[in-house]
Structures are given as C-alpha cells and as structure tokens.
Amino acid sequence: MNIFRLAGDMTHLLSILVLLLKIYATKSCSGISRKTQELYAIVFMARYLDLFTDFISVYNTFMKLIFIASSLAIVWCMRFHPVVRRSYDRELDTFRYFFLVGASFALALVWHDKFTLQEVFWAFSIYLEAVAILPQLVLLQRSGNVDNLTGQYVFFLGAYRAFYILNWIYRYMTEPRFTRWIAGISGVVQTALYADFFYYYFISWKNNSKLKLPA
C-alpha cells in the first residue's frame, strides 16, 4: 500500500459518502444518473468475485464489502425508496448503457490477463468502470444547474482514479516487473473522460459560481 493508493481509496470512499449524504439529506436523487449507479454496482460485483476466495487483508475485504453494499443500496433507493425515487430524472437519464456493458465484455473476452472466468470478469469490470461515468456526465449536461453535493460526488469519483494512476507509476518505479497495463490504460481513459468536467468544476470553484456544464 502506498500513499497514492490510500489517497485514491479514501477519495473513492469520500465520493460514495457524499452521494449517500446528498440522497439522505435532501431525500432526493435529482441530477444523479441511476444508470451510472447500476453500472458501478455491476463493476464491483464483477471485480470482487474473489471476495470469498482470495483473502488479501481486512482492509481489502472491508472496502470491497462497502463498495458492493453502498452501490446496491443507492440503486435500491433510486428504484424503490418511495420518496427518493420520485426525484429521479427519468426522462434525462436515457443513455443506452447496454452498449457500454456489451462492448466492455467483448473487449474483456479478447484482452485479459488469463482466460479464466474470474480474470475475464475482472478485465470486464475495469473496462466498464472506465466508461461508467458517461451516463452521469450526459445527465449533468442535460440537467443544467448542478447542486454542490452532486458536483463534489463526480469530482471525487474522477479524482480517485487519478490517484490510482500515480499509484501505478509509483509501483512501476519501485517494484520490479510491476505492470498493470489493463488497469493502467483503462484508468487513463477513465480519468480523461472527466477532463472537461474538471475544467468547468475548477472554473466554478475559481469564480465561486454555480457549476454549469455547456449543453
């Protein structure tokens, strides 16, 4: 474990806490893409198939359980919670994410570390996570004004993978024969997709103005 990876995991956890706070405090999920939340639930379930077979550490197992439980809880809230579900922007959250799932799985069948069920699903989860934010970014562009907690949620979610890139660079430099091409390349693509969001987020922070993404 290095400081970059710890910062990445803590930032990721923070993004989830901010989203839970937004939904719990405002009893609303307006501005949140349910499709992105569902994609993340798939990402975690596909990536942590080894949850009960490979024990890495208490921290690792604990965080995996947190990520799976929180993503499923958020999807449940957005679908079934009597109050929260009413504020879902159904007519704006229309990204056809089936293609993202299909393309990620097809790529995982071609490019993986080992051709085993666990490794193919792991690669699938890496590729799917890289594009999982797209429905959310599209929703932000369509929904005009973005409330602070939603903006912070997306910012931390994008920042965590940037920390992971620093972590991979650090491990590449300090550990012999360390390579993570699948996660590394996907991580760069994932972080690049946030580039324009980060720009407008920085502008809104500098001008102390409302975050607004151009349509």
Partner: peptide, 10 residues
C-alpha cells in the same frame, strides 16, 4: 511460491 495476487488493489 504462489504468484503474488495481481489483484491486491480495489
């Protein structure tokens, strides 16, 4: 020895 778990990250 077992190859180090190459999925020690989240």
């Amino acid at each position: 020895t077992e190859q180090p778990a190459n999925h020690d990250e989240l």
